[in-house]
Amino acid sequence: MKTIQKLLLSTAFAPLLFACESNNNPDPVIPLEATLVEDLAAPNDDIDRSTGEILEERPFQFFSLEQNSLVTEQQDWDIAFKGTTIRVNSTKNVQAAVVNGIFEEITEVPANATFESDTETSFAIPTGSGNGWYNYNSATFTVTPIPGRVLLVQTADGNYTKIEILSYYQGNPPVEEIDPRTTPSGYYTFRYLLQPDGSTRF
């Protein structure tokens, strides 16, 4: 993770979304800011493709959404990455749900979103192509975040976050430039928006 940038994406949308209400509501609207995390390196275990044998086991990378930084497993982490697997911190009762939609348009946690935590046998963010956040294309051998998949996470502090994963390859390259043999993978680029007041609105 080299740089972390703040984006003011939602400032552009907020006046539109709240335009009607602002006339009647004297409270000023505080725009929430989406955070962009670039190239979070979380390489998968080194696996012999022909036998499935793990040659070298690699650690999960633990991330705190509240702090916007990598932390250790002992600290208050929310989500953790390794390869295409994303875990949530079940010991701190971090929960997650996967929904479909456009990031900006999700202004509220949908009522039908089912939040779960990781268990012994399952992940709140399902793994496998097409199940969770990515599709694996066996024709081009690339992992692509599923457009329109948004991960909702209730952090260890109980705040709701929406996350959109943008790329699995180093430098967030356009899809045409990804060569699965040479482009380093296991580098997450994602943006997220955290509602610090504990409400379900973004």
Partner: peptide, 15 residues
């Protein structure tokens, strides 16, 4: 259409 590139598994992009 050769292959999906943008992850939605359908043929919908110039690339």
């Amino acid at each position: 259409g050769f292959a999906d590139r943008n992850g939605n598994l359908i043929l919908d992009d110039k690339g």
